[in-house]
Simulated assay, not measured.
Amino acid sequence: MNDTPVLAAGCVLWRRSPVDGNLEVCLVHRPKYDDWSHPKGKLKRDEDAVTGALREVHEETGCTALLGNELSTALYYANGRPKEVRYWAAEATEGHFTPNHEVDRILWLRPAEARQRLTQPRDAELVDELLTSLHNAP
């Protein structure tokens, strides 16, 4: 059994609604798992977590992002191996989503709706961390 963790990174991506200015969180739908999660993915060889997190956001949502505070690191088992996912708060700056084989849909939801839609409880906790992080921002 391989106990070396799979290293991954992602973001809790947010924006101000273009309609009413309210905070919205971006969720991605992965058809392979039929789940809703935050944009994230495995790091490439020798890739640092910050670069990987921003790359994954762009690949999965089409958005470029401005990185904010680091949030909790998720530790769990996937396919029998430990997985370590570092997360950051990130503000979407620009971009356009195009469906692909990995992510077929994205949703921009208010935080309470995002918490309800997320498949994993640990992902819902990250929404709370984002709100705390933004509330405490200078």
Rank of each mutant, 00 (worst) to 15 (best):
P31L: 04
P31Q: 02
A112Q: 14
E56R: 10
L130P: 06
G52Q: 08
T61V: 04
F97D: 11
E125I: 10
Q120Y: 14
A49R: 08
E102G: 12
G10A: 01
A8K: 07
H101S: 14
A8D: 01
T119C: 03
L66V: 10
A8E: 06
A78G: 02
K40P: 00
K42N: 14
V28L: 01
R105F: 09
S17C: 06
E84V: 10
P121L: 13
N79H: 15
S17I: 00
W108V: 04
R110N: 13
A8W: 04
R86E: 12
G62N: 05
E60A: 00
L67D: 02
N100L: 07
W14V: 00
L43A: 06
L109R: 05
L23W: 04
R81G: 03
L71N: 07
N100P: 04
T73H: 10
L54H: 01
V12N: 02
P99I: 09
E70P: 05
V50H: 13
C26P: 01
S72R: 15
D104Y: 11
L54V: 03
R30M: 11
V57M: 05
N22G: 10
L131T: 15
F97E: 09
C11S: 10
G52A: 03
T93Q: 15
P111W: 03
N69H: 10
S37E: 08
T61E: 07
E60Q: 11
R122K: 08
S37C: 09
E84G: 01
R115M: 11
E70V: 10
D48K: 06
T98F: 11
R105C: 13
S72E: 13
V28W: 05
D20P: 04
S133M: 13
Q116H: 09
D35S: 13
S37L: 09
H58M: 11
R15S: 03
A90G: 11
V25A: 01
R86H: 07
D123N: 13
N79K: 13
T61F: 09
E102F: 14
R115W: 06
G52V: 04
W108M: 09
V57Y: 07
E102V: 12
A78V: 13
I106L: 14
F97R: 06
P39A: 11
V28A: 11
A112H: 12
E24H: 06
A90M: 04
V57S: 01
K40R: 14
L126C: 11
T51Y: 00
D46V: 02
K40C: 11
A112T: 14
L23V: 00
L54R: 01
K42S: 14
A90L: 09
W36H: 04
